[in-house]
Amino acid sequence: MKVGIPKGLLYWKYGVFMEVFFAQLGCEVIVSRNTNKELLNLGVKQAVDETCVPIKIFHGHVASLKDQCDLLVIPRVMRMAEREYICPKFCGLPEMIKNSISDLPMITEEPIYAQNLDQLYKSMEVFGRKVTKDKRKIKEAFHKAWKAYEESFCGIYDVGYKMRVALLGHPYNVQDSFLNMNIVEKLHDLEVGVMTEEVVPRREVNAYANQLYKRLFWTFARHCYGSGMYFAKNQFVDGIIYLSAFACGIDSVVIELLKEGIGHFPLLVLKMDEQTGEGGLNTRIEAFIDMIERRKWYESNVSSSRECVHGS
């Protein structure tokens, strides 16, 4: 059986788990190509106008895969930690795909609950049964997949640079180099190192997230906010670049919380959609890096009139 895995959304963090799981069950795993212009256009054509660009890209990946496989993995991720949620669009992802793209092969519509290993196993068992009836085999595949996931590391931790910035945002915005126009390389060219939220210990993330009056109930919001606060408070990096898809509901909240939390720490928010031009993006990144440089090496924080120059 050929199993197709679209290289979009949570693939960037958990793709390896799905790949190993289905490969262990004896399927031929087909992962879609890296995102490119063609896929984006394909997605934009199919998806609902109001969605964010990562979802549109996912539509493109699905459309490109649908004729090549017998089973398409469209994960309906309901929850990734106890009492937490992720964006509602993920919970309705199979519906969005089903109603926007025609002639689909069999797809996985069952919900995935991933708050703990038992729950995750139960969810994956349903997936496995679509391929094989052998329960033992599913169990084995699951454990191997989990191990592979645990051993994988998709974060970035650069050392040896004079200056470092933290790159925050949903994993698919940070990792998909087409969507963010290869920002990591751009920063490296400017001799700036990059850190992502994966390098921050979970304990610290939760500690900062729990300081809020209202409990943050989105998993990725917690990660972004907690790690951003950690980076800023410990001066672990020189600035934060937040990658956000246009009209992302979760980011609209997290960015506000982060601004409030980090105070005058340098923060650049880059909004991305299918119309974002690369020139503007370059200018903004360069200006931001220049600003940090000057702040760090050439200026003190006190202006001639003894007022804070930086920050709002």
């Binding site: 998806a47 609902v48 109001e50 969605t51 964006c87 509602p88 669009k89 919970c91 309705g92 519906e95 969005m96 089903k98 109603n99 926007s100 009209a247 992302c248 509901g249 609209s252």
Partner: peptide, 16 residues
């Protein structure tokens, strides 16, 4: 309202 996450999903389903 613009950007309402759950309703975007329903908007995708309503044409069907």
């Amino acid at each position: 309202p613009v950007g309402c996450m759950p309703e975007i999903v329903s908007k995708a389903i309503l044409p069907t």
